[in-house]
Computed example of a mutant assay.
Amino acid sequence: MDTTDRLASQASTVRLPHPLTGLLLSCHPGPVAAVTVLAAALGVSSGLTTGCVALVASAVLAGQLSVGWCNDAFDARRDADAARPGKPVARGTVGAGTVWGAAFTALAVCAVLSLACGAAAGSAHLAGVLAAWAYNLRLKETVLSWLPYAAGFGSLPCLVALSLPGRPWPAWWAVAAGALLGVAAHLGDVLPDIEADLRAGIRGLPQRWGEARTRRLLPLPLVAATAVLVLGPPAGGGPGPVPVLCAAALCTVVLATAFAAPRPVRTWRKAALAGTVAVAAADVALLLARGTSIA
Rank of each mutant, 00 (worst) to 15 (best):
L38E: 08
R213C: 05
A124H: 01
T276P: 08
L164W: 13
E211Q: 14
C52R: 14
R15A: 14
Q10W: 15
G22M: 00
L255G: 14
Y149Q: 09
T252I: 13
V244C: 11
W268N: 02
V242W: 13
V277D: 11
L231M: 13
A103F: 02
A119S: 13
C158N: 03
R203Y: 09
P239G: 09
A247P: 02
T3C: 06
A212V: 13
S9D: 07
C70I: 10
W69D: 00
L287P: 00
L164R: 08
V14E: 14
T267S: 10
V230L: 14
A295K: 00
A235M: 11
E141P: 07
V244F: 06
L48K: 02
P241E: 07
R290A: 13
L23G: 00
A285K: 10
L231W: 15
L218Y: 01
A248R: 04
T226P: 03
A111V: 11
V242Q: 04
A76C: 08
C251E: 12
T292M: 13
W100H: 04
A280W: 04
L286Y: 02
A247M: 12
R203I: 13
W146G: 12
R138H: 14
V230F: 09
P17Y: 03
W209S: 05
V60D: 02
L229E: 01
A121L: 03
A224L: 10
L231Q: 05
G166T: 05
G152M: 11
I194S: 06
A179T: 03
S163L: 05
L231N: 09
P241Y: 08
L220P: 02
L16G: 04
G182D: 04
I202W: 05
R216T: 03
R216K: 12
T276Q: 05
S163I: 01
R15F: 13
G188V: 06
A124C: 06
A185I: 10
A285N: 09
L255E: 14
G240K: 02
R208T: 06
R203A: 13
Q64V: 08
L229W: 00
R213W: 00
G237D: 11
V265D: 14
A235F: 15
A235K: 15
V112R: 10
T36F: 02
W209G: 03
A282Y: 03
P264I: 07
L162K: 00
A227H: 04
K87C: 01
A39D: 01
A103D: 04
H125I: 05
I194P: 15
P157C: 05
F153K: 01
G86L: 02
S163T: 15
P170E: 04
Q10L: 15
G92W: 00
A103R: 01
P234Q: 10
A278N: 09
R215C: 06
